[in-house]
């Protein structure tokens, strides 16, 4: 039994005919101790998918229309609020995009970590454990740092505190929602390395949400690419990075600038991600797709299994042999 299994998840915002389906039939699974990377542009539904794992998308305005989210076999969407509280920050912990805004400005960071301990490991809710956690995430002088307020720390250090807070409960799954987007490039690398170390040291599974495929390198075991609320490609990280088969993934990888080639202009995918509610008919990527066929605008393709344990939502993936194979790491 996988640690996390999302089956055909559907989340809508709004009601009636104006309802907007932000997540449309997403299925994912993640084994204990493995790392899955969920990639997509802003508005692709990746963060909402990630938040829904602990039912954190506020409802209303959101509505969980269909599907299941199984954590160790139990459906999160059917849990009572007290069961949810045990799951949140317990079995599943979160690290968010903006550490500065995600820490409560009026409490000391030590107290905020201790709060997590009180909820999930009350017997360990003491200064010693807070110090141990801060050390674990590489904060020097944790004895004095724990008495800092969030605004007295740098962004990188704030994110380390967020990670320490997430680790307080010894979670089996860590969901990192674009944890490095708001940080400097050098700090990004440090945080990625820290997460990668901790994952091995603590044996937890990690769901990594990002819009930048290049940043992960070989941190992740598997990757799922999202576009306009749907998964368009799924496979092992190595396979997808080296041989992307969905036209969207290919464009996405091509738009990561390479260090070894000088270019005049950075490559970008033409057009923008369609707003949920204004999805085009048929394949949602067809207006921006370099290999679009007339049929693409009329029929929505299924996510079909292809060799090597991969899946792709494009019937023409094989016909595009001209695609350049890319091998790139951050």
């Amino acid at each position: 039994m996988p640690l996390l299994e999302i089956k055909n998840l559907q989340i809508e915002f709004g009601a009636g005919v104006r309802a907007v389906r932000a997540v449309d039939g997403v299925s994912l699974s993640l084994e204990a101790g493995k790392t899955l990377c969920l990639v997509g542009e802003s508005g692709s539904g990746k963060s909402i998918t990630a938040l829904s794992i602990a039912k954190l998308v506020p409802s209303p305005p959101a509505r969980y229309v269909g599907g299941e989210i199984l954590l160790e076999g139990l459906d999160v969407l059917k849990m009572s609020s007290s069961e949810l509280r045990d799951v949140r920050g317990g079995l599943v912990s979160y690290v968010f995009q903006e550490p500065g805004a995600s820490l409560n400005p009026v409490f000391r960071v030590g107290a905020q970590i201790k709060e997590s301990l009180q909820y999930h490991r009350p017997e360990a809710a003491n200064d010693t454990e807070v110090i141990r956690l801060l050390k674990l995430v590489g904060i020097s002088a944790p004895e004095s740092r724990m008495r800092n307020y969030p605004h007295e720390m740098s962004g990188g250090m704030q994110q380390r505190v967020m990670i320490a807070m997430a680790l307080a409960s010894q979670p089996k799954l860590l969901v990192a929602d674009e944890p490095t987007t708001a940080l400097d490039v050098t700090i990004q690398a440090q945080i990625i390395e820290l997460l990668s170390d901790l994952r091995l040291k603590l044996g937890m599974a990690v769901l990594f949400i990002t819009h930048n495929l290049g940043i992960l390198g070989d941190l992740a075991d598997n990757v799922a690419v999202m576009y306009a609320g749907q998964i368009v490609e799924r496979g092992t990280m190595r396979e997808v990075l080296q041989r992307p088969i969905h036209p969207y993934t290919r464009s996405l990888i091509q738009s990561v600038p390479a260090l070894d080639i000088e270019v005049e202009r950075l490559t970008a995918i033409p057009g923008t991600v369609p707003l949920s509610g204004a999805f085009p008919s048929g394949c949602r990527f067809h207006p921006r797709c370099p290999i679009a066929q007339p049929a693409c605008s009329s029929r929505m393709p299924d996510l079909a299994d292809v060799p090597n344990g991969r899946a792709v939502r494009c019937p023409f993936w094989d016909s595009s042999g001209n695609a350049r194979t890319t091998s790139r790491k951050a």
């Binding site: 509280r85 317990g90 968010f96 409560n104 009026v106 999930h120």
Partner: peptide, 26 residues
């Protein structure tokens, strides 16, 4: 609507703690 409220929910705080501890003080 601020991220630290979402973060408080994400770490398992009860709705009362979210509103009156994390929210009200701010």
């Amino acid at each position: 609507n601020s991220p630290y409220i979402r973060a408080a929910r994400a770490k398992g705080a009860s709705e009362t703690a979210v509103l009156f501890k994390h929210g009200l003080r701010n």
